[in-house]
Amino acid sequence: MRRFPWARAPDVRIRGVAIEDTFAEAFGMRAARVIITARDPRWAAEAAREMTGFATSVIACKVEAGIERELSGSETPDGRPGVSVLLFTMDADSLAKRLIERIGQTVLTCVTTACFDGLPNADDRMPVGRSLRVFGDGFQGSKVIGGERYWRIPVMEGEFLVQETFGRVKGVGGGNFLILGESDDAALDAAEGAVDAMRGMPGVVLPFPGGIVRSGSKVGAKRYAGMIATTNDAFAPTVRAVTASSLPDGVNAALEIVLDGVDAPSIAAAMRAGIDAACRPGVHSISAGNYGGKLGPYHFHLRQIMDGSAAA
């Protein structure tokens, strides 16, 4: 069939939900994977939840973090149950600082835990355990096991074990898609379904509460010069009449899913699973946030992702 450049792109729908012909624009970040183990899954999860708290956006939290997945004893360096956590920052130096702060305050303090690097093949290493060891006030010791150095820091419960260095890789932050619902309930049901489908997928975390963002933002502000980010009024239904709205007729709520990943293919795979799960009755369409392609080097085109033909 002959294609004309002025012809409109064909309508793409999944179970009746329109997939807009747009793309999510994402940025390069620095990523680390931390493996937290404990006597039982409860305490590994406690430490992981603390570690990933207040880590939704680098705008104010300095780091974005989330739980990647739970690990069985056969997947961890000490044979105990664990949790894999991914952390992301905008630059390399601050990632090391955030790891030292967060491991020191949320894992070192949590009973029965130990902390390991989850990126052993990364050449770029951060001296995390080497910095934390001084909490031992000279009573700490180290052990080299299989070529890796671990620090043993004496604590009131016994010993906290932390790997000397953690790997750092170039990751991708800000992958996203928007669920435009006919009602607030429909949008939330779809978003919850999307999150359930994406949770546990390798190499990806959803840093916002429950994996869902209701306060999507735009860069800068229309009225307040000092604001780095303000509400994404183009997708806020209550101001549809007084702003240049991007909401189609019949849409009464929009929710955003934000993804950070260790690489673009991981994000594309998770977006594919999430969007597919979100396409359900009550959802008008799926869109995505971008800045016209001028800011972020990673472009996740929704239609290409859904037909499996491209990743960023």
């Binding site: 961890t76 360096p77 044979g79 096991i145 043993r152 016994g158 010993e159 074990l161």
Partner: peptide
């Protein structure tokens, strides 16, 4: 000193069995 589970022993055992 005490009776406890040394965490580095667990790592060593996993290393020896797996590698």
């Amino acid at each position: 000193d005490c009776t406890y589970r040394p965490p580095h022993v667990a790592v060593t055992l996993v290393y020896l069995t797996s590698r």
